[in-house]
Simulated assay, not measured.
Amino acid sequence: MRSGNPALSESTFLDLASGSVVTSPDQVMTINGTVNKTGVLLLLTVLTAAFAWSQAIDASGLPTSSAMLYAMGGAIGGLVLALVTVFKKEWSPVTAPMYALVEGLFLGSISALFNAKFPGIVMQAVMLTFGTLFVMLAAYR
């Protein structure tokens, strides 16, 4: 199968086909390790999303001037970190948590803006999305 996605280039899975010997336990990918890392990244995203939400809406429920700042900063930072991670995969232990943090800023501020316009819609979406992810992580665990 061919893909235009640089993250799925022909060399991406080259180590799997070469039959190279794993030299340390850190190089082995397990389901439990993947579930744990996903949980940590989710926690980082939720923490910064909660912070951005609290900063994006004032006491009267109206958006603040910082809402768009967090949204734009999170979106641009997320794009930059995603591109860095795609082209420098060895940096992913550092860039993945950073990506989760900036995406939390984006998601929290955008969610607060949508919730100000359409009250209650965000909580339903968040509960369904995170509920599904939590159940899937528990099932894999």
Rank of each mutant, 00 (worst) to 15 (best):
Val46Gly: 04
Leu69Phe: 00
Leu62Ser: 14
Gln124Asp: 12
Ala50Val: 10
Val135Thr: 13
Phe130Pro: 01
Arg2Val: 13
Ile57Ser: 03
Ser66Cys: 02
Ser60Tyr: 02
Met136Glu: 07
Glu90Tyr: 01
Gln27Ala: 11
Lys117Ile: 10
Thr64Trp: 04
Asn5Trp: 02
Gly19Gln: 01
Ala116Phe: 03
Ala56Arg: 01
Phe134Ile: 15
Met29Asn: 12
Met136Trp: 12
Ala75Arg: 02
Asp15Ala: 05
Leu62Val: 12
Val46Leu: 14
Leu69Glu: 01
Arg2Glu: 12
Thr34Asp: 03
Val102Asn: 08
Pro97Arg: 08
Gly104Trp: 05
Ala67Cys: 03
Leu101Ile: 15
Met29Thr: 14
Ala138Ser: 14
Ala56Tyr: 01
Ala100Phe: 03
Ala67Lys: 00
Leu79Thr: 15
Ala71Pro: 02
Met72Pro: 00
Ile31Lys: 09
Thr95Ile: 10
Gly77Met: 10
Val28Gln: 14
Lys88His: 12
Ala82Gln: 15
Leu44Pro: 00
Gly108Pro: 02
Leu43Lys: 04
Val84His: 06
Ser54Gln: 12
Ala59Leu: 08
Ser18Trp: 00
Arg2Met: 11
Phe130Asn: 12
Phe13Leu: 08
Gly120Cys: 06
Val21Lys: 13
Leu8Tyr: 09
Glu10His: 06
Ser20His: 02
Gly74Tyr: 05
Leu133Tyr: 09
Leu79Ile: 13
Ala96Ser: 14
Ser60Asn: 11
Ala112Lys: 05
Leu69Asp: 02
Ile110Thr: 13
Gly73His: 01
Ser3Asn: 11
Leu8Asp: 07
Ala125Tyr: 06
Phe130Trp: 07
Gly78Arg: 09
Asn5Ala: 11
Lys117Trp: 09
Arg141Gly: 14
Gly19Ala: 06
Pro25Lys: 13
Val21Asp: 07
Val102Asp: 11
Ser18Asp: 04
Leu14Lys: 13
Thr45Leu: 13
Val94Ile: 15
Lys89Met: 02
Val122Gly: 15
Trp53Lys: 15
Met127Pro: 00
Leu42Ser: 13
Met1Leu: 07
Val21Met: 06
Ser60Gln: 13
Gly131Gln: 09
Ser9Ile: 07
Tyr70Glu: 00
Val22Tyr: 09
Gly33Asp: 04
Gly73Met: 03
Phe13Met: 08
Arg141His: 12
Ala116Cys: 07
Val40Cys: 03
Ala100Ile: 03
Pro63Glu: 01
Leu42Glu: 10
Thr64Cys: 04
Phe118Leu: 15
Leu105Gly: 08
Thr95Met: 07
Thr12Ala: 11
Lys88Gly: 00
Val94Ala: 14
Leu16Gly: 10
Leu14Ile: 13
Gly108Ser: 08
Gly4Tyr: 14
Ala67His: 00
Thr23Asp: 08
Arg2Ile: 12
Thr48Met: 06
Arg2Tyr: 12
Val84Asp: 05
Ser20Gly: 06
Ile76Glu: 11
Gly104Asn: 09
Met136Leu: 15
Leu137Gly: 07
Ser20Gln: 13
Ile121Gly: 13
Ser18Ala: 10
Ala138Leu: 15
Ser3Lys: 03
Leu41Lys: 09
